[in-house]
């Protein structure tokens, strides 16, 4: 079977298009690259959606945590504490069993699928981690900028949107880039954590694990996963770097914050 044929059969296998059965023989490089690559669709799906939705929630959480009203501040603090203080793996399990209860009570049966349930967990998780990052950045906005805004007559919402928030983003961006990268890495946990795999439609690591189980040879599938994820990480660093450049465009060259990838925050 030619490699192109394999790509046609398994290129979109992870979303249920193409061959129904997973390969049972051969297990050549082409097969492994194709199937693991098709699994990457789910990693990108989880990562991208969680990143976008989580970004907005994280901003809200950071603002709530900075509030002087304890009725608003305390829930935000607890939210961050619970999601940052416990392992994502346990969060997945617990959420799955909660969703199972909800389903048995007759509501929202779609919650127990990985595509919806795990996504909710990932959104909340990344919202907590990024919320803490944004909160930290919010606290370090230079006082002079706020005073200058006051002097120019900016108040309330206008002052926040045009002065405080852009600076917060600029200060938080390097740390937020790391968080985004680790969010994508965390998506590999989804199909190992209670959420069932429907018709063997899994993510990249799920298929790599499948090949490693079948061939007893971990030295091919896992490096392929590593290869794909290094590409994904580079793409993320690239696109976040573009945003970073835009956020810093008003600063003199040497004061611009450089994006440096450091694994300081993972779950």
């Amino acid at each position: 079977m030619s490699c192109w044929q394999t790509v046609q059969d398994y290129g979109l296998r992870a979303i249920g298009i193409g061959e129904r059965l997973l390969p049972r023989e051969g297990f050549d490089l082409c097969q492994q690259f194709t199937l693991i690559g098709s699994g990457l669709i789910w990693n990108v799906y989880f990562g991208l959606l969680a990143l976008i939705v989580g970004f907005f929630i994280a901003n809200a959480v950071a603002l709530c945590k900075a509030s002087s009203n304890p009725w608003i501040r305390k829930p935000a603090e607890w939210f961050i504490l619970v999601f940052r203080g416990s392992p994502l793996f346990i969060q997945f399990f617990l959420a799955y069993f909660i969703f199972l209860r909800v389903k048995q009570a007759g509501y929202m049966p779609w919650l127990t699928s990985a595509q919806a349930g795990a996504l909710i967990v990932l959104v909340l998780n990344t919202a907590a981690y990024s919320g803490e990052i944004f909160f930290g950045a919010l606290r370090t906005v230079p006082r002079g900028e706020v005073e200058a805004a006051d002097a120019y007559g900016f108040t309330g919402w206008k002052r926040f949107v045009s002065i405080i928030w852009p600076t917060t983003m600029r200060l938080a961006w390097p740390a937020y880039t790391n968080e985004a990268i680790f969010l994508f890495h965390a998506t590999t946990l989804v199909f190992f954590s209670g959420f069932p795999t429907w018709r063997q439609q899994g993510d990249a690591l799920y298929y790599a694990n499948y090949f490693a189980d079948k061939t007893f040879n971990p030295f091919v599938p896992y490096p392929i996963v590593a290869f794909y994820f290094i590409l994904l990480t580079l793409a993320l660093i690239g696109s976040f770097g573009l945003v970073n450049r835009r956020l810093n465009r008003h600063l003199p060259q040497e004061r611009r914050a450089r994006l440096k990838f450091r694994p300081n925050i993972i779950r």
Binding site: H185, A186, T188, F216, F219, V225, F229, I230, T233, I266
Partner: peptide
């Protein structure tokens, strides 16, 4: 540098078999 770009779970699954073999 290699561990930074790759999910740690992939390493866990890999090393357990690789070390055993």
């Amino acid at each position: 540098s290699i561990v930074r770009g790759v999910p740690d779970i992939a390493f866990f699954l890999f090393f357990v078999i690789a070390l055993d073999q």
